[in-house]
Simulated assay, not measured.
Amino acid sequence: MTVVTLGALVALFVPFGGRGTDAANGDGRQGSSAPGGRDRDHERVDLARRITDFTRDTVAHSDYLPPLRAQRRTAAEAVGLFLDGRRAEAGRRLDDIDFGIRTYTDTATGRRFAEISDRAAEGRRGWGRVYIDLSATSHWSVQVPHPVADSGSEQLGIGVLRARRGGVLVMAGAHRNADKKGRADVAHRRDTVFDAVCDELAARRFPGLQVHGFADSTEPDYDVIASLGSADKGLPTARRAATALRHEGFAVCRAWARRCALEGRGNVQGREAEDQGVPFLHMEFSRTVRDDAARVRRASAAMAAALPS
């Protein structure tokens, strides 16, 4: 795949806001969602600011309540219904777990996005959010399992979603250490809403891109650790992504060519992608990269350009 000129791609950032009793919209006003998930407003918001506010004000302080199997299944089925165009039915299913759907127009891109989020318990359950680009048929996902814990990783997810149409952004709703038993670490648990939604997308054969962060001292000679987790089907995509990143000046440790730290082989979303035979990329970025907004934009655009059509 040809790597497009990054200057032609849209800049990054996008937030997960919602109608939680403690969460404000990106414009500072409380939101609401009509019964059954029907759209009641089409606000214009800066989605980057919205997600950033959500991670800072909610995710960073959220408790974590492990969901029941039926609740996980309901969330995943509702996302599937929405992707199938059965939006009213999706809304009714989400009502059962006190989630809702809202739509927004992103001021940076002019595109509309749907937000699936906790209506009443954000900050208490920590089940996360889903964003769906409504400007094109959905066919790939970007996943942020460790917001706040991997500081700035949400900005990479936001940037990829903005840089390419047809994406679904899945984001955890609590710090990975929010639960003392480790149950909030969604990249390594099968019993989370995050994992259930990612499984639904993998079953629909959506390639998955999961973004993480590492301390500079972990791999001091590299800016990026690119790996497949355990999903070997993603090798062509991984090679394209690594090449695009190198062209942008990033030093990339390619786990399929040499030994790298943090290769993500225990990542459960990667294992599901392997079972489904769909591409999956596990991308780790240094703290120095994640702290530099310009480099985050370039990295996001490079990854977006490398995703399969």
Rank of each mutant, 00 (worst) to 15 (best):
F113R: 04
D118E: 15
G18M: 02
I51H: 14
R73Q: 15
E115N: 10
H282L: 08
M303F: 06
D57L: 13
I101Q: 05
M171E: 10
G7F: 04
P308Y: 05
R44W: 06
V79T: 09
G17M: 07
M283Q: 10
G123V: 03
R298P: 01
Q210P: 10
F54W: 13
R204H: 00
A241Y: 04
P220G: 12
V4N: 03
P145H: 07
D63H: 15
A241P: 05
G123T: 02
L65I: 10
R73G: 12
M1H: 14
S309Y: 09
R189K: 12
G36F: 05
H212V: 12
I51S: 12
S32G: 15
R50V: 04
D96A: 15
D292A: 11
G213F: 00
R297N: 09
E154N: 13
G249I: 06
A11K: 12
V193C: 08
C253P: 06
A304P: 10
G80R: 13
I97S: 07
L262Y: 08
G157V: 03
R29C: 11
C260K: 12
A215D: 15
L156C: 06
H212L: 14
R56V: 14
A215S: 14
V148L: 11
P220Y: 05
A178H: 09
V14G: 04
T105W: 04
P145K: 11
E274I: 02
G264K: 07
L12M: 09
G128M: 03
R38M: 12
S141T: 05
A90D: 07
A75E: 08
G80V: 00
G80P: 01
E154I: 06
Q30I: 10
H146T: 03
D185L: 01
R176I: 03
V296F: 05
V278R: 04
D39Y: 11
G26E: 00
A196W: 09
G266A: 15
A238E: 10
A261Q: 13
T103S: 15
V170D: 07
V45F: 08
V148T: 13
A90W: 00
L245V: 01
A202S: 15
G157A: 14
A114Q: 09
R298T: 06
R38Y: 05
S141E: 00
R165H: 08
V197D: 01
R297P: 00
V211N: 07
T137G: 14
D63K: 15
A244Y: 01
R40V: 14
G182W: 10
A294F: 08
S117Y: 03
A88L: 11
R40K: 13
S153W: 06
D185A: 08
E115A: 12
L94D: 04
A48Q: 07
V148C: 10
G110F: 09
S138Y: 07
F13W: 02
S62G: 12
A251I: 04
H188D: 08
V289F: 12
H42F: 06
A90S: 13
V130P: 01
N177Q: 11
S138P: 13
A187I: 07
